[in-house]
Structure formats: structure tokens, C-alpha cells
């Protein structure tokens, strides 16, 4: 009996162990290529930024794709995460003077603070904003994002309009920062997958499908819309915290609404409503835009044209509603569960 339980346990955790192992192998492979000078730090950094963009886009997918709200202020949450975590490592602690054993803990703490602060803002913004719907919600979130940026410019302690330099580059590309980024990325994917396929996630989906019907099914739609905002904000905040500690310098203008529309583009180009779409959209566009750098000024022109063509000829995005199977939790009875999962449109 005992043995059978143990076996069940192994079977249950096998996919997770598999994914974790895959992430570790991936990390080691990249590290090896870097040591072997096949990959320059520049490439690794692009990969890291791609993963950060994935995190933010995954959070945005929860708000826009799963819950059916329309937020275009995600960069504001990234800013909150970046600034609050940087405040921890520069103002609260003198990071570089800390003993090496304490540094990871303080860094972890800083990322948590970044995520938490963004979450608080997510609540403060989500709660009143949800009184308005659709396009109005979009403009309110955009407005809040810009207000956050204005506020940062106002706070002298974090550099105001001049930006904040000298943040310890603890997650920098040379300090093995890829490990940190991969860790938080994997955590984000795992948490969001579990969230979406829980009763809370289904409640979010019901808000998207038909708010009134959802209410008559006993779903407090306000609660779940706000919750989606908070979770999405926390993800963005964590990504912001990492970003601050990769580059070591943050400036209010890095978080303008233009950045918010980037995430929107990643999501819709990849395929809104699925995590696969968010990940593939963010990763591929980040990389493609870097590859196209040799085009100099032509790069964004082509980007604009491609975006328009994409919406004309592949409107459902690259993934068009398909989800990677490992992003859908297995159920015993669900031997032949549909490919699209709960989020398919």
C-alpha cells in the first residue's frame, strides 16, 4: 500500500521533475556555449530579456486573454517592481558590502518586494478601474501607467527624472543572472498554469465569456477581475525587479506606454488566451527584433508592416489557440481532454 502511494507520488511529480530537469539542462547548455565563446554575453542577455518579456506577457495574458479585460498599462507595474526592488538593494541595504552568503537572500527579498509592491498597485488600480469596461478600461490602465511614471519622476530619492543608476547587477549576464531569470520564469509559468486550471482560473474565464452568466453561476466577477489584475501585476513586478538588477540602471522613460504596447503586441502576435502564445510571441519577437538590428532604422518600419500583415493573414497569432500539452494539468478522468484546454478560443 505504502509502496503504491510512493509510486503514485513519483508519477504525479514526474512531469514537474522532468520540466525542472529540462530547465537545468537548458541552463547548463547555454552556460557551456558561453564558456566555449559560441554565445557572447550579448546573446545571453537577449535571451534573458526575452524571458522577462515572457513573464510580463504571461501576466498580461491572464488579464487580457483569460479574464477578458483590456489592460494596456503593464509597463507601469514593471516600473513599480523595478523601482521598489532597486530601493531595497540600493537604499535599504548596501548590497555590494553584504557578505556573499546573504546576497542571494537579499536579492530574493528584493524581487519579492518588487512583486508585492506591484501587486499592491495592481489592487489599487484594478479595484476602481473595473467600474469601467472595454476601451475605457484600456485608457484608464494606460493612464495609471503614465501616472506611476509621473510619480517616479517626482520622487527624488530614486533619482526622479534623471533615473536611478548604480543598482547592483546581481542578475547581470556576467554574474550568472540567467539562472535567476530562468528560475523566476519557470516559477511564473508553473504558478500561472496552476492558477488558470484552478476554480479561480475558470472563474476568470467565465468573466471573459459572459460576465452576467458568470454572476448567475455564483462567481463574484469583481473579485476575480481584481485578482487577475493583481496576479498579472505581481508577474510584471517580478520581471521589473529582475530587469533592474540585470542592467543596473533604470529610468522612468523605460516604462512608458510604448513599452506597454510592446507586451500587447507580443501577446496578440503569439496568440491571446494561451500561455504558449504569450511565451512564443514574446520570445520570438524579442529575438527577431534583435536579429533585425542590422537593418538599423528600417527595423521598426518592417516590424510595423509585419505586424499589420500578421493581423491580416494570421489574426489568431502564431499559436492560434493551441496550448502545449504540458501547460494543461492532467486529470485522471480527462484521458482525451481537448487540445485547446480551458483557454482555447
Amino acid at each position: 500500500m505504502k509502496e503504491r502511494n510512493a509510486n503514485a507520488g513519483i508519477r504525479r511529480y514526474a512531469p514537474m521533475i522532468g520540466v525542472a530537469a529540462a530547465v537545468v539542462v537548458f541552463y547548463l547548455a547555454i552556460e557551456y556555449l558561453r564558456q566555449a565563446r559560441v554565445l557572447t554575453p550579448y546573446y545571453v542577455q537577449i535571451l534573458m530579456f526575452g524571458l522577462l518579456n515572457c513573464m510580463v506577457t504571461l501576466g498580461l495574458n491572464l488579464i487580457n486573454g483569460i479574464t477578458g479585460q483590456f489592460s494596456i498599462g503593464q509597463a507601469g507595474f514593471v516600473a513599480v517592481g523595478a523601482y521598489s526592488s532597486a530601493a531595497v538593494t540600493t537604499l535599504l541595504f548596501e548590497f555590494n558590502k553584504l557578505p556573499a552568503t546573504l546576497q542571494p537572500l537579499v536579492f530574493l527579498f528584493a524581487v519579492c518586494v518588487g512583486g508585492f509592491a506591484a501587486g499592491v498597485f495592481g489592487y489599487l488600480i484594478g479595484r476602481p478601474s473595473l467600474r469601467v469596461k472595454g476601451d475605457y478600461l484600456a485608457i484608464v490602465t494606460l493612464g495609471f501607467g503614465e501616472i506611476i511614471r509621473s510619480l517616479i519622476r517626482y520622487i527624488e530619492a530614486v533619482g526622479g527624472p534623471r533615473g536611478l543608476p548604480g543598482i547592483p547587477q546581481y542578475a547581470g549576464v556576467r554574474g550568472g543572472g540567467l539562472a535567476w531569470v530562468l528560475f523566476f520564469f519557470t516559477l511564473t509559468v508553473w504558478f500561472l498554469r496552476n492558477y488558470i486550471y484552478s476554480f479561480r482560473g475558470r472563474a476568470c474565464v467565465s468573466c471573459r465569456e459572459d460576465e452576467l452568466a458568470a454572476e448567475t453561476m455564483g462567481v463574484n466577477t469583481t473579485t476575480y477581475k481584481v485578482q487577475a489584475f493583481i496576479v498579472g501585476a505581481v508577474t510584471a513586478g517580478a520581471a521589473g525587479a529582475l530587469q533592474a538588477h540585470i542592467i543596473g540602471f533604470i529610468h522612468p522613460d523605460q516604462f512608458s506606454y510604448v513599452r506597454s504596447t510592446d507586451f500587447l503586441v507580443y501577446l496578440y502576435a503569439g496568440g491571446v488566451g494561451t500561455m504558449s502564445g504569450a511565451i512564443i510571441g514574446a520570445m520570438s519577437l524579442t529575438i527577431v527584433l534583435e536579429i533585425l538590428r542590422f537593418l538599423a532604422d528600417w527595423r521598426l518600419i518592417i516590424y510595423g508592416v509585419v505586424l499589420v500583415l500578421m493581423m491580416l493573414y494570421q489574426p489568431n497569432g502564431i499559436c492560434s489557440g493551441k496550448e502545449f500539452p504540458f501547460l494543461i494539468p492532467k486529470l485522471k478522468a480527462a484521458a482525451k481532454s481537448s487540445k485547446a484546454g480551458v483557454t482555447g478560443r
Binding site: N194, F199, V205, E209, A214, M217
Partner: peptide, 26 residues
């Protein structure tokens, strides 16, 4: 909920009958 499967429609209706914490859920 038109875009969802019949089963998911029912699952959403069972919303009030499912209770577990936020973090255990995560």
C-alpha cells in the same frame, strides 16, 4: 459560455462548491 466545452460550463457552475486556498492552488 459559448467558447468553452460543455464540461467546463458545468465546472464553472460548480464554482461555489470548490474551495481550496490561493497558495495551495498555485
Amino acid at each position: 459560455f459559448k467558447e468553452l466545452s460543455a464540461l467546463d460550463n458545468i465546472k464553472i457552475a460548480r464554482h461555489m462548491k470548490v474551495k481550496y486556498g490561493f497558495f495551495p492552488g498555485l
